[in-house]
């Protein structure tokens, strides 16, 4: 039963990742791409971490996975904030990487 639930969670997480990646590739500007990437990936990572923690089967491992999830989410939000702030400052630069 637990394995079944874990697999479901991991599959749902992968689905969120897929949606986020499609959004990154298809959305028109920096902000909506960031929106797609951070929202979908954070949820995806959460579901994935939950599934893996269920499969791990030990409270200590589950706690460590939760810590990894927390640190990854903080790092992702900060990176998103930085990129959005930079884009706002210098304007959209599209695909060129001129500074």
């Amino acid at each position: 039963m637990t394995t079944f639930l874990a697999c479901g969670l991991i599959l749902a997480g992968v689905g969120f990742y897929l949606a986020g990646t499609v959004g990154l590739l298809r959305f028109p500007d920096v902000y909506s791409r960031l929106h797609a990437l951070t929202k979908a990936d954070n949820t995806g990572l959460g579901l994935l971490a939950l599934g893996v923690a269920l499969l791990a089967g030990s409270p200590r491992l589950a706690l460590l996975i939760a810590l990894v999830w927390l640190v990854a989410i903080i790092a992702a939000s900060v990176a998103c904030h930085l990129i959005a702030g930079y884009a706002l400052q210098v304007g959209e630069c599209g695909d060129e990487d001129d500074r």
């Binding site: 640190v71 900060v78 904030h81 930085l82 930079y86 400052q89």
Partner: peptide, 18 residues
């Protein structure tokens, strides 16, 4: 560094002990 590209100080306070 221009202020905008600086990482927020909270990040260091959160992550440095870790």
């Amino acid at each position: 560094l221009p202020a905008r590209t600086m990482l927020p100080a909270t990040l260091a306070q959160l992550f440095l002990p870790l």
